[in-house]
Design a protein around this nucleic acid. Structure first.
Lengths: 196, 196, 196, 196
DNA sequence: AATGAATGAGCCTTCATTCAT
DNA sequence: AATGAATGAAGGCTCATTCAT
């Protein structure tokens, strides 16, 4: 009596194990053993489902991006005001979920990994373009001639914020990247056409 | 009397080889073999001078930071105007030398490595505090009540800029982080008290 | 269901290979490769089962002692006469099995190894105390006031006998340590109270 | 101005370093580095004088034997009584100098090494034959028909005594091998022809 | 579906030894 | 006489991956 329908269960257990393990160790130097053990299965089974360690990483990256995308969608749903939408994008980027040391650590590692894995690089690029195109789309309505630049600025502050947040043990609310990004946005817009 | 004074030569050859090798492969998954070969010596000699692979990495990080610090010093020498000094810090951060894919790649990898190596973490922290304290020092003269925030913002744009620059193959001058950072600075200051 | 129950088979194959390899080479400078090859498996598997070369040695020592203990038990079973029991202990110590160059060589090496390995030192001490306590127990019935000394004497002759036997290639029956030990015992007892 | 006549100084420094180092570590797994450092010179110079690590060991063994031989000669000088001579041999074997953990440890290691090195094996054999022939020579005057056996017995107790002494941390004077050996001698002789 | 068993390949590290000076 | 410099060779150990069951 073989169990059926195990595949999705096993897969997501593994994906979460990958993220968790990377987050804890801070590196991608995690063994398939560690991952499999945390996912509660043998290494052989892990390979059975993913074929290779590499693909486990890719799947994990994919998972993070899907999840992040879903979070964006959910928070943006029903909101029409452009400024509000941009602010939501910023706030979501720095949500508690995304600021967890574990997540950022995995994220940072995937940035590095992208330089080796074509697959991950592609995933990241897609994610980046989507984020920026979203930003630009709204910003064009707010500050047409600077939209591109502001979008890139916000994106840079987001990425830089992650990196610095995880590196600096101490958390200083005054230096929370969310504040920085929102302020950056406000400044740009107020210059263009002052908002109250 | 034996052949003498090889140590500094070998050491710096190794350090450069480490950076170069990490830069090329994009990962810290480089073998001591590769490093030693690129530095033109045997792995045994590499170990003789550094004791372990880990310490080669630490030395390389150290080297990058020292070099960066020197570049800052040089460019800032003789400049007194606070605004000018901040702009120089930004421009130096994005100098051609520092924007080389090789350097940034190594840099990014060291960020990750910092989560494993106490030594590297310490080095990074020192560097960060120095950079930020420099920024704050000048910014207090320009915008006292926002100095902290602006400093953090600039630092975030710098780090985010690195990450995104190396990730995105294509270079778009409009999105060059230097422009973003300078504009960010200008905006903040012009709001505070318009400059000529 | 995988091939199962290999562990004990592999373990004992390895243990025997260790003893055999040490016996042949006369040193503990044997590589894991040699051991694994003689045991018919890869070095990786050897490490899988024992974790480290050191533990292979410890396991081998353990094995020798267990085996020796079993031999003693077997030969002593059902024998009640104290003198006979002491003689059996001596004879068993010098049984053909225990006098094999291979075994003694391993034995001698473990003596040396004990100075490095806490584990082996403990094993040896336990074995020694057990042997001596056995000897003393019987000797107290035969020569109460000299039991301790005789026991130590016999033990010394046993250990010295091993060492000299393996060192001296030529075997001279007149100098067989068994004879020496038995004679030593006889002398001590005859002085104390003549036997029939 | 090359220094002249350094050779004997360097040699004996090295020989002592070898013994010392083996004694401290309890193994022959000492590196030429360690030896050379303790002898206050470079490894290159150590090789210059001895050619190879192996020969350093051989020289050290040689040194120990020479020194032991000298001790015997000194103590036996002028003594004519056979019994007294045998007792002196025993007492010298267990002199404080020879019972030092360091010495015994080196000694034990050389026993093992003898199984690999033809040179050391030869040295040991010569030493053994000389010791035994001395013993036999005297014992023939005391107990002609048992001389061989007694000699071997004493020798076994000596070697066994060393081994057990170094193994057992605790020193129990009642179990000091010297006492055992002397008692063994007395017993054998008293049986043959009682002495007062 | 699942896993113990097994291994090839490779990596870091150590070390005896040689050489030029 | 003396040593820093340098390396080839080898060893212990790890790990991703495959396979038989």
């Amino acid at each position: 009596m073989p169990k059926i329908g195990m595949q999705p269960i096993r897969s997501s257990a593994l994906v979460e194990a990958v993220i968790s393990e990377i987050g804890h160790s801070g590196t991608m130097d995690v063994t398939v053993s560690q991952i499999a053990k945390r996912a509660g299965m043998s290494t052989a089974l892990a390979h059975h489902y993913f074929g290779s360690k590499n693909q486990m990483f890719v799947a994990a990256m994919h998972h993070i991006l899907i999840q992040l995308g879903a979070e964006f969608s959910k928070n943006l749903k029903g909101v029409d005001d452009p400024l509000e939408r941009v602010e939501i994008i910023i706030r979501t980027s720095f949500s508690d979920l995304n600021m967890r040391q574990e997540t950022i650590s995995a994220w940072l590692n995937f940035y590095v990994f992208a330089q080796k894995s074509e697959d991950v690089r592609r995933l990241l690029k897609i994610y980046h373009s989507r984020l920026e195109s979203n930003l630009r789309h709204e910003l064009r309505k707010l500050a047409p001639e600077k939209a591109e630049t502001i979008a890139e600025g916000i994106a840079a502050i987001i990425d830089g914020g992650y990196v610095r947040w995880v590196l600096r043990g101490a958390k200083n609310e005054a230096q929370h990247p969310e504040r920085i990004a929102l302020e950056y946005l406000r400044l740009n817009l107020s210059e263009h056409g002052p908002r109250t």
